[in-house]
């Protein structure tokens, strides 16, 4: 793969806490990725449309309002519906570990808990994108 990894950092729902999203967006840019940030209050449909239009490899969802179990699976469902489920979806925010298995089942590849170093997130993304390229 020659082009840099493209990531959409997205804030689904009504949550206004964007400190984490802004930091991860900048952090992944520093890691050499191309990052698009959606801004606040995006519906899952808007996020999926932007992801397809921008031809991203990865969507990073950030939610601190507790609505992750509703909003994250809606994103993966719509991606599948659009035939774009090769896009890797990861998430972060205020998310209890007991929700991880459900979210994984719903196609969220990884949940990053508060305190995760940016490098760790970047490495996960690189590896996941590489594996996907291998599979194709």
């Amino acid at each position: 793969m020659n082009r840099p990894i493209r990531v959409l950092v997205a804030k689904p729902g009504l949550d206004g806490h964007d400190r984490g999203a802004l930091i991860i967006a900048q952090g992944l840019r520093d890691e050499g990725m191309e990052v698009i940030y959606t801004g606040l209050r995006q519906s899952p449909a808007q996020i999926v449309a932007t992801a397809i239009q921008e031809d991203v490899d990865v969507i990073g969802l950030s939610c601190l309002s507790g609505a992750h179990n509703e909003l994250f699976p809606e994103v993966t469902r719509l991606l599948k519906e659009e035939g774009a489920d090769d896009i890797i979806v990861v998430g972060g925010g205020v998310i209890p570990q007991s929700d991880f298995p459900f979210l994984r089942e719903q196609g969220i590849r990884k949940i990053f808990t508060p305190g995760t170093a940016t490098r760790e997130t970047a490495e996960f993304i690189r590896k996941a994108v590489k594996e996907r390229e291998g599979a194709q």
Partner: peptide, 11 residues
């Protein structure tokens, strides 16, 4: 409201 989906009663 459709905009409220998933967020009702959460925070």
């Amino acid at each position: 409201d459709p905009m409220a989906a998933g967020e009702v009663g959460k925070v």
